[in-house]
Amino acid sequence: MRMTTTIKTAAFVLAAVALPISAAQADAPRTATISYDDLNLSSAKGQAIFDRRIEAAVEAVCGRVQNKPTFDSAVRKCQKETNTTAAASRDLAVANYNKRRLAGGDRTIRLVAK
């Protein structure tokens, strides 16, 4: 009986310590940097590759849907918000591609998900 109580107490203490760590990690923004330095964004092929990189980065920072209703809701919300900001950055990168190519410049976009 005493051993069972000790195990339950140890499990409770571990859960109490792990919970704040998980909550802190959940609140920390997750980021991804997507380079298009090697792509020709003036071509449809280059833009398609860039779009796939963005999709992969959104999944990396937001996670994948896993058929867990509570978790999936948060993932979908993150993906929607991150895709919205990514689309604006993507469109700006494509629109300014030739200008930046002439000027040198950093050819990356950065995604931030909370």
Rank of each mutant, 00 (worst) to 15 (best):
T9M: 10
A10H: 01
L14A: 08
L14C: 08
L14N: 05
L14I: 03
A15Q: 06
A16Q: 06
V17G: 06
A18H: 00
L19D: 07
A23F: 10
A26M: 09
D27C: 03
P29S: 10
P29V: 11
R30V: 04
R30L: 06
T31W: 00
A32T: 00
A32K: 01
T33R: 03
Y36H: 08
D37H: 10
D38S: 14
D38L: 12
D38G: 08
N40K: 11
N40W: 02
L41F: 08
S42M: 07
S43F: 09
A44D: 13
A48F: 07
A48I: 09
A48C: 06
I49L: 11
D51E: 15
R53Q: 06
R53H: 04
R53Y: 01
I54S: 01
I54P: 00
E55I: 14
A57K: 04
E59Q: 15
V61Y: 02
V61G: 05
C62Q: 01
G63V: 01
G63R: 01
V65S: 13
Q66E: 15
N67H: 14
N67M: 11
T70L: 12
F71A: 09
S73R: 12
S73F: 04
S73K: 12
A74Q: 11
V75Y: 05
V75I: 12
V75Q: 06
R76F: 12
R76D: 14
R76Y: 14
C78I: 05
C78Q: 01
C78K: 06
T82C: 04
T84Y: 10
T84L: 11
T85F: 05
T85P: 00
A86R: 13
A86Q: 05
S89T: 04
D91C: 08
V94T: 06
V94W: 02
N96I: 07
N96M: 12
N96T: 15
Y97W: 04
N98D: 09
N98H: 09
K99P: 06
R100A: 14
R101G: 08
R101D: 11
R101K: 14
R101Y: 11
L102N: 11
L102E: 08
L102D: 10
G105Y: 04
D106L: 15
R107D: 03
R107V: 05
R107N: 07
I109Q: 00
R110H: 02
R110P: 02
L111M: 02
L111A: 01
